Computed example of a mutant assay.
Amino acid sequence: MPTPSLDSGLHASTMKRLNLKLIPFLMLLYMVAYIDKSNISVAALQMNAELGLTARMYGIGVGLFFLTYILLEVPSSVILTRVGARRWIARIMITWGIVAAGMAFVQSANQLYGMRLLLGAAEAGFTPGIIYYLSQWYPKTDRAKAMSFFYIGAALASVIGLPLSGAFLHLDGYFGVSGWRWLFLLEGLPAVILGIVVLRYLPDSPQTTHWLHADQKDWLSRTIAAEQANSPISHHAAWQTAFRSRQVWLLSLFWLLQAFGTIGITLFLPLIVKSVSGQESFTVSVMSA
């Protein structure tokens, strides 16, 4: 039986290793995901005029993403638990990268609507999938900290992604292709590449990784298994408990209001800044970031 001091040392060394090997890569994945669903806000600086989109048509286009995203979030997450997080996260990234790059070929409002619906369907389950994956690696005492670092990827997406998108607009006219089309194409391809990397880089479980020592693997597997053994066995009972909890509903309301405000700002800010400042696209993207 391991002593408390030994367990404490293994805890610290194992978490340090996980934070080094998993968190930066997962942050990168989330940053790319956030860029691909929000870069339309910068593309709109050129795209709306070229396609003849009104503010209402643009709003419908960006909003339709969330229709399929919400509808398929739970089914996608269920499939992930059955086929494995690594494989399903890779599938999500490859398909959303293809769709995101395919936005470069949109020619009308209806095509924009269709592609945004496809993008939402392709990306559904990504964030819950990452949360599930982290739950297989991090004990409860460390999971919140791991999640907080993961979510930093969204902030980095704005800081890095918006100016990058603005820079891509300057490719306007290269090979006869509009700048906003270059933006979608060049920012969609990294998701495809990273999806392939996920298959090779992310291990399925602590026991299959090569960068943890044997004692670290054993401690982590024992800890996670013990926590799961103390969780409700019946998934049906767990669902009932969640839906009857006032705290769950209150936290859900907080999340809804937070998302309602930030998503609206994210998707319309460059257009607002452009109308107020009159600056060129790259300056607008930097100001928005």
Rank of each mutant, 00 (worst) to 15 (best):
L6F: 08
L6H: 14
S8L: 13
H11K: 12
S13D: 15
T14G: 14
M15A: 11
L20K: 12
L20G: 04
K21Q: 11
F25Q: 05
L26M: 14
M31H: 06
I35D: 11
N39C: 08
L45V: 12
L45F: 11
M47I: 09
A49E: 14
L51Q: 08
Y58W: 07
Y58A: 08
F65I: 07
S76Y: 00
V78W: 06
L80M: 14
L80D: 01
R82L: 04
R86I: 05
R87P: 00
M93F: 15
M93N: 10
I94L: 10
T95H: 06
N110T: 14
Y113G: 03
G114K: 03
L117M: 12
G120M: 08
A124I: 01
P128Y: 04
Y132S: 02
Y133R: 02
D142G: 05
R143Y: 12
A144C: 12
A144D: 13
M147R: 00
F149M: 06
A155K: 06
G161Y: 08
S165M: 13
F168V: 00
H170G: 04
D172T: 02
F175G: 03
G188H: 11
P190G: 10
P190H: 02
G195V: 03
V197D: 10
V197W: 15
S205R: 15
L212S: 11
L212R: 08
S234P: 04
T241N: 01
F243H: 00
V248N: 01
L250G: 03
L256T: 01
Q258E: 06
F260I: 07
I265Y: 09
T266M: 12
L267Q: 15
F268K: 07
P270M: 10
V273L: 06
S285L: 03
S288L: 07
A289Q: 04
